[in-house]
């Protein structure tokens, strides 16, 4: 039996949810923040043989402080390999070696499509966002894509304003039609309220587990599409004592993860 301390914050729970999706031996592309923390929790607990890489060119970094970007100086000393984008995105991701990719987006829709390009009309944008970066190739080519999102009707959408990164695109058969590799695509959406998974047939996200202080009804009311609920829907397992220990004592002693609370992950 696992002990579950109750003094955790929501971003810590979300990082643990991400961690639990990683299997021992997985090859994982991470960015910064949540993904790095989630992947490292896995590495220090149930998946010691997972390999982490950053798109900028780094494999198996050994940072002495949390990395603030995928090009952070702390990723350099001690890594197993340092190359460049062509190595990571081409030789490993495009060639089919990457098991898990983490993505987040300003907008995520029911098929797991992600928008990081523009809010509003592309030619007359309300807000110009950064663009794809590595997100589109990761969403196109990683076997399992884990998506981090804020759970409200602005950040989740029936349809995103702009598909920067493909989820299941228009639904069943879309990825196949476009020639994206078999057995790739979104696996889960982890929000500050719930964990949603994708229906095998409809490719729509449905509610799998709800976080401890919410309810199925609240989550349905915060979701802009007609959210289906799993037959076995249940409460998300809170962070385990050993997960929090790794997070707080090894990965993030300054508790920089708190910054996500100010970004609405509460």
């Amino acid at each position: 039996m696992h002990r579950h301390p109750d003094d955790y914050i929501k971003p810590e729970l979300m990082a643990c949810c991400g961690s639990r999706e990683i299997k021992d031996g997985d090859i994982v592309i991470v960015g910064t923040g949540f993904p790095t923390m989630a992947a490292n929790i896995a590495k220090y607990t149930h998946a010691p043989n997972a390999t982490l890489m950053q798109e900028s060119g780094v494999i198996d970094a050994r940072p002495r402080r949390p990395a603030l970007s995928v090009g952070d100086p702390c990723l350099n000393p001690g890594a197993a390999m340092i190359g460049g984008l062509v190595d990571i995105m081409g030789m490993f991701l495009q060639a089919g070696w990457v098991d898990v990719g983490f993505l987040s987006g300003s907008q995520v829709d029911k098929f797991g499509n992600i928008n990081t390009t523009v809010i509003g009309d592309y030619n007359k944008p309300k807000s110009r966002l950064p663009g794809s970066g590595g997100a589109n190739p990761i969403g196109s080519l990683a076997k399992k894509v884990l998506i981090i999102a804020l759970h409200n009707k602005k950040r989740l959408a029936e349809h995103v304003d702009f598909i920067t990164t493909p989820g299941y695109i228009d639904g069943p058969g879309s990825r196949e039609k476009w020639g994206l590799p078999d057995n790739t695509g979104p696996h889960v959406i982890i929000t500050n309220k719930a964990v949603m998974r994708f229906d095998k047939d409809t490719k729509e996200a449905y509610l799998a587990t709800y976080h401890p202080d919410t309810s199925v009804d609240e989550i349905i009311s915060l979701t802009p599409w007609e959210l289906r609920v799993a037959d076995d829907v249940h409460e998300t397992e809170p962070p385990r004592e050993e997960e929090l220990k790794v997070l707080r004592e090894i990965l993030d002693p300054l508790r920089m993860i708190r910054i996500y609370e100010s970004r609405g992950y509460v």
Partner: peptide, 29 residues
């Protein structure tokens, strides 16, 4: 994207006219 642009530069560096890439498909890009 961070796959297609580096590959376009790789093609340029190799004197190739173009290069196939497996991303961007099915998206507004």
């Amino acid at each position: 994207t961070n796959l297609s642009l580096p590959m376009m530069l790789l093609a340029g560096s190799m004197g190739m006219p173009f290069v196939p890439v497996k991303d961007m498909l099915g998206t507004d890009l």
